[in-house]
Amino acid sequence: MDVTVRYFAGARAAAGRSEEAASADRSLDELVGELAQRHGPRMAAVLQVASFLVDGVTCHDRRAPLPAGATIDVLPPFAGG
């Protein structure tokens, strides 16, 4: 089973889409590396400063395996208030 990766703001612009599926058999760190390779240097820069939610909860252990069927939100820093 896959995970769903949802992109917001600058991450959506860098990916050219609002969401996509990715394999669940990896950690968040591994997924981030795959996404950077898949989408190029602009995405890699966004991912370096982004926060990540796994099923709506901040991810504190980026080396833990992602649960199958999870939703991963990629949240770059937002401006404004």
Results as ranks from 00 to 15, higher is better:
57 V>C: 11
77 P>Y: 08
79 A>N: 04
49 V>F: 12
55 D>R: 05
48 Q>C: 05
4 T>C: 13
53 L>P: 00
66 L>P: 00
56 G>C: 07
25 D>F: 06
1 M>Y: 11
57 V>L: 10
61 D>W: 08
66 L>W: 09
30 E>F: 00
19 E>F: 11
56 G>T: 07
50 A>C: 10
56 G>Q: 06
5 V>K: 07
2 D>L: 10
11 A>G: 08
34 E>W: 12
24 A>R: 13
21 A>L: 13
39 H>Y: 15
61 D>Q: 09
1 M>S: 13
24 A>T: 10
20 E>I: 11
72 I>D: 04
60 H>Q: 14
40 G>T: 02
66 L>T: 03
5 V>Q: 09
51 S>K: 14
76 P>Q: 09
16 G>K: 09
15 A>G: 00
29 D>P: 00
72 I>T: 05
42 R>Q: 15
47 L>A: 03
39 H>V: 04
61 D>T: 04
67 P>M: 07
45 A>C: 02
12 R>G: 02
29 D>Q: 06
71 T>Y: 07
77 P>A: 06
47 L>N: 02
56 G>L: 12
80 G>E: 05
53 L>D: 08
12 R>I: 06
73 D>T: 11
78 F>S: 08
75 L>T: 08
3 V>K: 11
51 S>R: 15
30 E>G: 03
31 L>S: 01
31 L>C: 01
77 P>G: 02
41 P>S: 15
64 A>T: 02
38 R>M: 03
75 L>R: 04
21 A>P: 03
39 H>G: 00
7 Y>R: 07
56 G>W: 12
20 E>V: 14
26 R>I: 06
28 L>H: 01
16 G>H: 05
39 H>E: 05
22 A>I: 11
42 R>H: 13
59 C>H: 12
35 L>C: 01
23 S>M: 12
54 V>H: 05
24 A>E: 12
17 R>G: 05
29 D>I: 05
37 Q>Y: 01
50 A>K: 09
28 L>E: 04
32 V>E: 00
10 G>F: 09
61 D>K: 07
75 L>M: 11
74 V>E: 03
81 G>T: 06
54 V>F: 08
18 S>N: 14
62 R>P: 03
72 I>F: 07
48 Q>Y: 04
67 P>F: 04
79 A>K: 03
54 V>R: 12
59 C>T: 12
44 A>R: 08
36 A>E: 02
1 M>T: 13
25 D>G: 13
